[in-house]
Design a protein around this nucleic acid. Structure first.
Lengths: 134, 134
DNA sequence: AATTACATGTTAGGAAAACTAACATACGTC
DNA sequence: GACGTATGTTAGTTTTCCTAACATGTAATT
């Protein structure tokens, strides 16, 4: 896939299309749960002019990951850590891409992994929204 | 693509995910227009328990086709005809697949085309929802 | 055993979004 | 100028979603 395509599909996946009722069905989470996870800053759904939450496909993906980890006994704090690390490591990766070799990068990511695994054993299975679109 | 994948992506594309407000943004149609097209049976959005319309990606695709044809001067009746023919010819095609050769099939579809073209000159450009997912 | 923290349920009251139905209007056609 | 078609607008209702508060089950802590 070209980087152009990657960028525009990222755009589509982050478009706020879905009301909470749809997200409830897709994830089998309650509204209370979804709002609670937002309260803890695990997701940041868009708001309409009238203050209704509107969710993207990425949000649904994230919620499925959260659900997964909770079911595996990871608590909010743990999930936050995992997400922080993910963000950090993808920033690192983006930055590193232009500076270092692949093998050096893999080495760094292995070290990051160890850091997290010391604290908990999260499921790293990726969210499964791919079921719901093309 | 395997026929299994084709079937399941069709499933996803027909899932009622979107409220009318989202569809309005995606298509740049007014609520009045969308409801009017439903009234004329060009789309059949799902209804929630509380009677709210919920639209699928296929519905959005269809609406974009309708918009396209209207802009090209085709009226409701013409659009209906085009859709009827589409449905008919895809049924025909499905049935034919197991009975006749490709070249025979192409011949039949050419004849169907002529039938419609005698009445109007619709745009056959396909709806462009592919912008919005994966 | 009592306390605490965490994740979620439930309820109440209010605001936004969507519904139907009816009437209004612009524009093309007879 | 009357008519038909596609769309706008408005009014009155119903449904969905919002926040905030309090309730509850379970696990960890004392």
């Amino acid at each position: 896939m070209s980087s152009e395509n990657k960028r525009s599909s990222e755009l589509r996946r982050s478009m706020p299309l879905l009301p909470i009722s749809t997200v409830m069905q897709l994830t089998e989470l309650s509204a209370r749960q979804i709002r609670y996870y937002e309260e803890h800053e695990l997701i940041q759904p868009h708001r309409t002019e009238g203050n209704r939450r509107m969710f993207s496909l990425n949000d649904v993906d994230t919620l499925l990951e959260i659900k997964d980890m909770l079911e595996q006994g990871v608590n909010m704090a743990g999930i936050k850590k995992v997400f922080d690390m993910k963000k950090h490591s993808s920033q690192l990766k983006a930055q590193a891409k232009e500076e270092i070799s692949d093998s050096e990068l893999r080495q760094i990511l292995r070290e990051e992994m160890k850091l997290v695994q010391r604290q908990q054993k999260p499921s790293l299975r990726h969210g499964d929204m791919s079921r719901f679109y093309q």
